[in-house]
Nucleic acid binder design. Structure first.
Lengths: 202, 202, 202, 202
DNA sequence: AATGAATGAGCCTTCATTCAT
DNA sequence: AATGAATGAAGGCTCATTCAT
């Protein structure tokens, strides 16, 4: 049987899930505490027991969601062997997700970016997030350099370019799914990555 | 002396400037009509005289701002000779702008993206915007291919990768100016672009 | 050529017409000065030249409209010979008007009544109006009494009953034209009047 | 102790009472949500808790008030024996009410009529209301016809004439209480009704 | 732990009125 | 005479937050 603190943690997770779903559906700017409470099967007062303010709830929700996303990509990457495979393997799984899930992820991501511009805490959260992504990719690149597969290079800049391309292409896919299909996005991503990496091959 | 319609146009521009400034300062989600009215030196009622609703004003403001930005980049590009120069020349001038201006541009851009997720009109505006950027870059790439400087390639995908890298790097610069300085951003951009283009050289 | 004061009077009439039309269309509660100005082919400022305030304009419009209506009924009555004919002839012409015109008249009438409840000036206007109607009918009844066609009676009360029936029936016609057709209204009116008058016949 | 749903119903009634009182005092066109909230001893937000919009509140208030009025007249009618007595008994109790209450009733009635002209829902409400009145009176008349007290007649038309006279006379009383006293109104009503009915007596 | 009634601040919008031109 | 820009007050509605139960 779950202990009291565990029950509390479970309830908080349920609320965070509800918050994320509501944000993905309506956009964080259009989400009210009442919406989230309803989605979580709680009253507004009940919600207040777990999260003192909307701001706290939103921050937690972003962190919570980021964690899940990060795990998803990290596992995909870890399952690959070799630097190039890792870098491609980082992104490709995304294209096999339901478009609805990708939509949700991007809505939330861009909401967070938008909020970051005027809120130091959101900004710190976003920067931390970016750093973790870059660190992951940088490690793969450094491994490739160490193994002599890539030549010497500023691996952080390269990681950033790769991340940017990934984000750029998937953003277009997300915004224009009828124009930029999954197949197109997948191919564009792989070609760009290979182009970027090719000169580093001996 | 300015004619009546001209005066009206001037006043609208002043209001749009005020709107953009206020959005850049507070984030579009935190901008009220009263804020904009005050920034424009008008009463709320006076503002309503020019823009019937907040939605109309915001849409016009985004268009207005985009036009100015687009001209800035287009002129920088047009001033360059040769495909590679054009593509680099498109982005480099940004790094010589005041960081405050770059900040403003990115705040507004990401606000628009965030709004686009739940508003068809904003989405259309954003997609149109993206298309114009891509078209501009694609033309330079096609010119390079035609002149035999680049080999055959899907020029639209390449344009997108380049745009993405540009956006990704400048976003990092914008979010972490103390970490990612102007010099770093400039170098990272140029290297990534050259890497992407190099394999296409004979 | 019309003199200056005449021109002013013509302009005022045009505005009053515009006001009445707008009130009939939207209901006086939903009529703005801008609406009236537009209907009169004037700007808001132009309108202000002729009527200093909305209240003044409305009062004038009600009076103006009432005058026209009153003339319409009075002429119909005057064209009849004999007391019963006059009383029937007062109401019957209404049923031959366009339903749209009757609608307009009732909308304005009930707006005025509604306004009267909280505005002494409107109330006075309405009472004066009622008195004039009653006086007209009372005269016909008194004539009938004098001629020995009707027996002695409180002719004012009788006039009021007749007016009320007229208003009641036409109101139902106006509210439910599909249920209470013109033919029905006409017949109900005539029968009620004859019933009321019959006992007074020797 | 009242249960939760009961408490909610009580509160809603209190608010509807407050709304009716405020409408009777100021006229529905001049009633704000803040007025009603204050009259109900609530804040504006508290009021919104019970009625989502002004329109909903107004519609409920009209229905609520009508119900009470209808019960008042129906009970007076039911307490009488015989067709003529019922028809007279329907109206006469009104003249024993406080003039303030009659005023309130008429203000609200005419506000509703005025609103009906441009709002389908109010119109439906008003028509339904009228139908109920007519049905009540028609039943008494039909009873009289069946019992041979009145001769055959279109009982609905007759009910309408009677209703109209009642409304007409009380309206004059309401508008001009100093001119048309209670005694006058009472007498005028009774005489008109008897005149209308007399020809139907054998 | 949970409810939901209640608050109060804030926002968008409408509109009669004024006034410089 | 006429315009329409500008004002400022007022109203309806939303919503995060508080609190008694």
């Amino acid at each position: 049987m779950a202990s009291i603190p565990e029950l509390e943690a479970i309830r908080r997770s349920q609320i965070l899930d509800a918050a994320i779903n509501t944000m993905a559906k309506n956009g964080s700017a259009n989400v009210t505490m009442a919406d989230i409470a309803e989605a979580a099967g709680l009253s507004k007062g009940g919600l207040a027991h777990y999260f003192k303010s909307k701001d706290e709830l939103f921050k937690e929700a972003f962190k919570y969601y980021y964690s899940a996303i990060f795990q998803f990509f990290k596992q995909a990457m870890d399952a690959c062997d070799g630097p190039i495979e890792k870098i491609l393997g980082f992104g490709l799984p995304l294209f096999n997700r339901e478009i609805a899930q990708v939509n949700a992820a991007y809505k939330i991501l861009y909401d967070l970016i938008s909020l970051s511009a005027h809120n130091e805490e959101y900004r710190a959260l976003f920067c931390e997030w970016i750093d973790e992504w870059l660190t992951l990719k940088k490690a793969a690149i450094d491994e490739g350099i160490k193994n002599g597969i890539f030549r010497e290079h500023d691996s952080l800049s390269l990681a950033m370019s790769i991340s940017s391309i990934f984000q750029g292409i998937t953003t277009r896919w997300y915004f224009n799914p009828e124009l930029h299909t999954k197949e197109w996005a997948e191919k564009a991503f792989e070609e760009a990555i290979r182009s970027l990496l090719k000169p580093y091959l001996i």
